[in-house]
Computed example of a mutant assay.
Amino acid sequence: MAGINKPVALHWLRHSYETHLLESGTDLRNIQELVGHNSSRTTEIYTHVSIKSLQQIKSPFDDL
């Protein structure tokens, strides 16, 4: 047994899959194709960006 005490839904696993793809560098448009969304806006809603990913963004102003 996995020892997971919280309810888990397949829908949440799909969110996680899309988020991990995005965080590993997969282009949003490619994720859209993989999961079969008609609109990239839908893919944007279902992908979540972690704080760690946001902290790794380098500002173009840092090079000035």
Rank of each mutant, 00 (worst) to 15 (best):
A2S: 15
G3T: 03
I4A: 11
I4F: 14
I4T: 11
N5R: 08
K6E: 15
K6N: 14
P7E: 03
P7V: 05
P7K: 03
P7R: 02
P7S: 04
P7A: 03
V8G: 05
A9Y: 13
L10I: 13
L10F: 12
L10N: 13
L10M: 12
L10K: 12
H11R: 08
W12Q: 04
W12L: 07
W12T: 02
W12P: 00
W12Y: 08
W12R: 03
L13I: 08
L13R: 05
R14S: 12
R14A: 10
R14T: 10
H15E: 03
H15A: 05
H15G: 02
H15K: 04
H15I: 10
S16M: 08
S16F: 12
Y17F: 09
Y17S: 05
Y17W: 04
Y17T: 03
T19V: 07
T19Q: 07
H20L: 08
H20K: 06
H20N: 02
L21S: 00
L22W: 00
L22D: 01
L22N: 04
E23G: 01
E23K: 05
E23M: 03
S24Q: 12
S24T: 13
G25W: 07
G25S: 04
G25N: 06
G25M: 11
T26N: 09
T26G: 06
T26H: 04
D27E: 14
D27Y: 08
L28W: 01
L28S: 04
L28V: 05
L28A: 05
R29F: 01
R29Q: 08
N30T: 15
N30L: 14
N30H: 12
I31V: 07
Q32I: 04
Q32C: 11
Q32S: 09
E33F: 11
L34I: 15
V35G: 10
V35I: 11
V35M: 08
G36R: 01
G36Q: 01
G36I: 00
H37P: 07
N38A: 13
N38K: 12
S39R: 14
S39V: 06
S39T: 13
S40D: 13
S40Q: 15
S40K: 14
T42W: 06
T42P: 02
T42R: 07
T42E: 10
T43A: 03
T43R: 06
T43F: 02
T43N: 02
T43Y: 03
E44I: 15
E44C: 15
I45P: 00
I45S: 01
I45G: 00
I45T: 01
Y46T: 11
Y46W: 10
Y46V: 10
T47I: 07
T47M: 06
T47G: 06
H48D: 10
H48C: 12
V49W: 05
V49E: 06
S50C: 09
I51E: 11
I51N: 09
K52M: 09
K52P: 01
K52Y: 11
K52C: 04
S53D: 00
L54G: 00
Q55K: 09
Q55I: 05
Q55F: 04
Q55M: 03
Q55L: 07
Q55H: 04
Q56F: 10
Q56W: 10
Q56R: 15
I57P: 06
I57W: 15
I57A: 14
K58Q: 12
K58M: 14
K58T: 11
K58P: 02
K58A: 11
K58E: 10
P60N: 13
P60Q: 09
